[in-house]
Amino acid sequence: MNSVLLATAARLFKPLLLLVSVFVLLRGHDEPGGGFVGGLLGASAYALDAVTRNTGSARRKLPLAPHVLLGAGLLMAAASGLPALLQGEPFLTAQRYEAALPFALQITLSTVLLFDAGVYVVVMGAALLIMFTLGEEQI
């Protein structure tokens, strides 16, 4: 599919889609969204690239190889269970840390977010690995 129009649109859409995907991930705990949808959206940003041009160029633009993403995501998700062990609680029990920032800002860090981010990275990595692998077959 070598459409100039689509290719240009894709170039504009990609950063936007990536941004949206991270937004969807972050708001997932309170509003519809989360790691699964976020990761899929992130992958589709690159998938668009793959469809409009070719998988090779999409792959080159990716800062990390998909299988690295897979491993990193799984590690993140699993690592989010470790703080609970330090507290003597069962593996993966959610932990929350409130941190006060300057200018009266509150920030809440939680292992749940780390876990969901791990899911995001795994799903994105898996979807990309699949797209790239199967897409290359036809060329």
Binding site: G28, V112, D116
Partner: peptide, 17 residues
Amino acid sequence: AGGRNVVNVILADFRVL
């Protein structure tokens, strides 16, 4: 769990394993 999206809370907290 401090989350308002129950589906996501189930996925990422209650049934996280």
